[in-house]
Each structure stands twice: as C-alpha cells, then as structure tokens.
C-alpha cells in the first residue's frame, strides 16, 4: 500500500509540479498553443456561418433518446 500511496499523483490545489511520467504530455504539444490561437480564430472566422443568428435559429432537431 505504501508504494501505491507514493505513486499516486499529487493533487494539492494549484500544484504546478506534475509527476513526470504522466501520459498525454502530448498535453502541451497537442493542444492549441497561445501562438497558434490567433490563426485558429482566423480560420474559424472563415468557416463560421456568415449569418450566425439565422443558422442557430434554423438548427431545430426532434428529440431522440
């Protein structure tokens, strides 16, 4: 049990030191970096329906399960 307690990740509030062996370290690499955010938003500007209000209003679904 002692081993388990030691290996369990810390979870104190706001602890910036994460265990080094966490998977998904990807985390830093695989999410949008602050530098990329502007270009992502620019692309969203191009893709978003130009009449957003009408688009949202007309998206009406029937209920399902």
């Amino acid at each position: 049990m002692a081993n388990l307690e030691q290996s369990r990740p810390q979870r104190r509030e706001g602890d910036p030191e994460l265990p080094p062996d966490l998977p998904g370290p990807a985390a830093a690499a695989s999410q949008i970096s602050d530098a990329d955010l502007d270009s992502v938003l620019d692309e969203i500007d191009e893709v978003l329906e130009s009449n957003a209000e009408e688009f949202v209003r007309s998206f009406v679904q029937k209920g399902g399960q």
Partner: peptide, 18 residues
C-alpha cells in the same frame, strides 16, 4: 485517469487537447 484528474485539479484548461 490519474493524470487527467491531476491536471484537471491544477488547471482544467491544460486539458484542451484531450
């Protein structure tokens, strides 16, 4: 599971890739 909970506890916004 532990990794995601740990990082959600520290700062949820760091999970934007997962």
């Amino acid at each position: 599971w532990a990794s995601v909970l740990t990082r959600l506890t520290a700062d949820p916004m760091t999970l934007a890739g997962e």
